[in-house]
Every structure is written in C-alpha cells, then in structure tokens.
Amino acid sequence: MEYRKLGKTDLNVSRLSYGASPLGSVFRDISEDDGIRTVHTAIDMGVNLIDVSPYYGLTKAETVLGKALKGIPRDKYILSTKAGRYGAEYADFDFSEKKIRSSLDESLNRLGVDGVDILFLHDIEFGNLEQIFNEALPCLQALKQEGKVRYIGVTGYPLKMFSETIKQADIDCILTYCRYALYDNSLANIIPSFEEKGVGIINASPTGMGLLTNRGAPEWHPGNQQLLDACQKAVKLCQSQGVDITEVALQYAIDHPAISSTLVGTANPVNIVKNIEWAEKPVNQALVKEIRKLFDNVPVVWPSGYPENQD
C-alpha cells in the first residue's frame, strides 16, 4: 500500500482508505459480522484511514465501527468522523457549537476512542455560511486546541464551498465526493489553491455514488437523465472490453498525485480485497480517454444544499 502525506499535517494516509457508511446499512442491509471482518481485512492489508459519520445509518455505522476497532492498537488506524449532519432533511443539520461538542462526545463514546484524528463539518452547503465561519469552524479550532481532535476540515459537494472556506478559515483538509471521477474531474481545477495553502485532499465516491458500477445508480441518485445514460454507455464500453468499470473508476480517481487518499465503501470483505488489488494496478489510459469522451457536453453536476451555496 502506498502512503501519502495529508496536506500540512503529520498524517501519512493510505492512498486507498475505508469509508464506513456501508456499516450503517446505507445502501443495503448488511451483516454486522461481515462489516467487522471488512474493517479488519482493510487494516490488515494496509488501509490506515477510516472515515465515518453519525449520519450514516443514524449512528449505526459508528456503533458497528466501534465494535470493529475494539482491541486494535490505536496507532494502527487514522480515524475521522463528522458533525453537523444527522439526517436527510434540512432540519436535520445543526452546526451550532453546543451540538458539535455534544455530537463529538457521542461519537467518541460509540467509537470507543478518546479522540479522533480528523473532525469534519458534514456537508456545509446545507448550513448558513455565517454560522459555519463564525461559530462552527471556531468551535472546531477550539476542540483542536483542547486536544479532542488533531485536525479539522469540511466536507461537501459544491466546489464553491471549499474555495470559500479556505479563503475564510484555517483548515487542515477537505473531504470531497463525486467531483474527481471519470465523468466529472472539475476538482482538478481548484487543486492548486489547496496545495498553495497546504490543505490536504481526501476524495470519496470514485464511482459517483453507484453511477460507474455494473449495478448502476440507485433510484434516489440526484444525477440527471443525460448523466445516467452516459454512465450506462460507459459501463457497456467497459463490458465490451471485459473490464469492470468500477476498477477503472477507482484507478482513475487515485491516480492524481495531489489527492492524498480516496475513500471506498463496502461491508463485504471480498470486495475490499478486490478494491485494494485494483488500486495496485495502473489505469488503462486509452480506455479512460474513451470513457471521458462519453461525457462531452453532458451536464454532470447536480444541485446540493441551499441555492446560494451551489456551484
């Protein structure tokens, strides 16, 4: 497993990392035992960054992850969790200092640890930016000074949110999803601004929340029909060449040298092994070029959060 430095932190994170949302049965009902074995397999194979959130499965993912981490030496993994998002509705977001502090305490209890390496504000496009910058981020800074968290950052979908945050606040890293993938690599346009400030980049969902899989996108996917159709063409193109599109999507996403780590999520031990093995192989650049052409002139971005916070 290759390791990369996360921005200006002292964390060396595995190029492929584990996204624990499936432990909350977010995509399908899972076997808790399978989920725990998946975490153990990932760590045994060199994955050292694990990301979770109280939102995933409404605290179930953190609870199951806590069971999986029991007995594993703390220096074997780098742990990140989030605060601010607790459900699917706008009313389920709370970026107040009081809630962030209680949320972190509850997360630490579920995870069975004394502190986390990274605490993120979760999907800040659903918050009031005045509160984000004047209350929530100062709270994270205070928690960092108090030693409850080592590093801080924000997550979200609109790239505009990251650009605005690094202008107004001192953060250590960002967690972006679906914005550096085969169908949309627009994150690359703003990477130099992160590098300039030493802000580390963690990328999530290289398949675009199921778009670039043989199974296809779930019914709830927010992408438009043109995007869904183009992704199906990409799947068929790969199938015609005897290739699993998820393999190409993963290899493409982790190939950017400025992206420290890419999160993959599964609750199946066999799948995590497959993902790690794929990550060790070089990407087929000719096939990538063919796939990328399918998305020319296709609208690839969907709305997320308050209108004023969207790209």
Rank of each mutant, 00 (worst) to 15 (best):
L212G: 10
R101H: 04
N284K: 06
N12L: 15
E195F: 03
S96I: 02
D10T: 05
R15I: 14
R15D: 03
P282I: 04
L250W: 00
G57R: 08
S304N: 08
T81E: 11
L137R: 03
E146R: 09
P282Y: 05
G265E: 01
V116L: 11
A61H: 05
D29N: 14
F295Q: 12
P257S: 13
T38K: 07
G19D: 04
A42L: 12
N309S: 05
N275T: 01
A258H: 11
K236Q: 15
G35N: 04
K293R: 15
D29V: 14
L137V: 13
T63E: 14
D117M: 07
I78L: 09
P54Q: 07
Q239W: 02
K70T: 11
R37H: 00
L159R: 06
E308N: 05
E2M: 12
T213G: 10
V288Q: 06
I291R: 01
T155N: 11
K70I: 03
L69H: 02
Q251T: 02
S304P: 00
N189T: 08
W278F: 14
L104A: 02
I43M: 04
F194E: 07
S80V: 01
Q241V: 02
G7H: 07
G66K: 05
L137I: 15
N214T: 08
N271C: 03
K160S: 15
P307L: 14
I100V: 14
G208E: 07
I190H: 05
D255K: 12
D172G: 11
E308M: 03
G87I: 00
L182T: 11
G147S: 03
Y177H: 13
K8R: 15
M209R: 10
I78S: 07
Y180A: 13
N185G: 15
Q168T: 09
M209Y: 09
E164T: 13
R15W: 08
V235N: 09
K281H: 10
Q285H: 10
E135N: 07
V235T: 14
D75I: 08
T41Y: 06
G35S: 04
A279N: 02
V26S: 08
Q310W: 10
G24Y: 08
M1Q: 06
E195M: 14
G305F: 03
Q241I: 02
R28P: 00
P138Y: 09
T41V: 10
Q141H: 15
Q226T: 03
S21Y: 06
I30C: 05
D117F: 07
S304V: 00
P303M: 10
P158I: 00
C139W: 01
G127D: 04
V13W: 00
T165A: 14
K148E: 11
K160N: 12
I174S: 08
Q310E: 09
T246P: 00
D229H: 05
K274P: 00
T41C: 10
K98C: 04
V13N: 01
S205K: 04
E2I: 11
F95N: 00
R110C: 08
F126Q: 01
A204N: 11
D117W: 08
W220P: 01
R101I: 08
R28Q: 11
T207R: 00
S193E: 10
A136T: 02
G46E: 06
S260M: 09
S186L: 09
Q232F: 06
A42I: 06
